[in-house]
Design a protein around this nucleic acid. Sequence first.
DNA 1: CATATGACGTCCT
DNA 2: GAGGACGCCATAT
Length: 112
Amino acid sequence: MASDPGEINQRIWQVVTMIPRGRVATYGDIARHAGMPGAARRVGRALRGLPAGTKIPWHRVINAQGRIAVPAGNAARITQRRRLEQEGVTFCTDTRISLKRYRWLPGGEQSE
DNA sequence: CATATGACGTCCT
DNA sequence: GAGGACGCCATAT
C-alpha cells in the first residue's frame, strides 16, 4: 500500500518531475500534493537520497523562504542555483528567489 | 522508550 | 528582510 516508504519517495519524485521548466515549488506544497501535508521534511529526505545523474528535477524544489535548502559543503547547492538560472529563474538576492513569481501551484496547472 | 538532528513550515519579534 | 521559537515527520543512537 502507499504506506511503504518506497511508495512514498516514488510519489514525491512523481510530483517533482511534473514541475514545469522555469518554475519552482516548495517542500510543503510537494508534500501536500503527494498526500502528506506537513511532511515537508519527508520530501527533503527523499531528495537527499537521489543519485547524481537522476532524471528528477530536484533543483526546482526549494524551501518556503525561496532559498536553496541545500547546506554548504554539498556541490548540489551550486548545481541547483546554476540550473535554475539556466532555466530562466532569476535570484532576487544573493540567495533569494521570487516565489511570488516562479512558485508553481500543484494541481493549479496555470495556463500562464 | 527518550533524545538529538535534519535538503522544512509557520508565527512572532 | 533577518533571526529566534515552536511544531511536524522520520531516522539514528
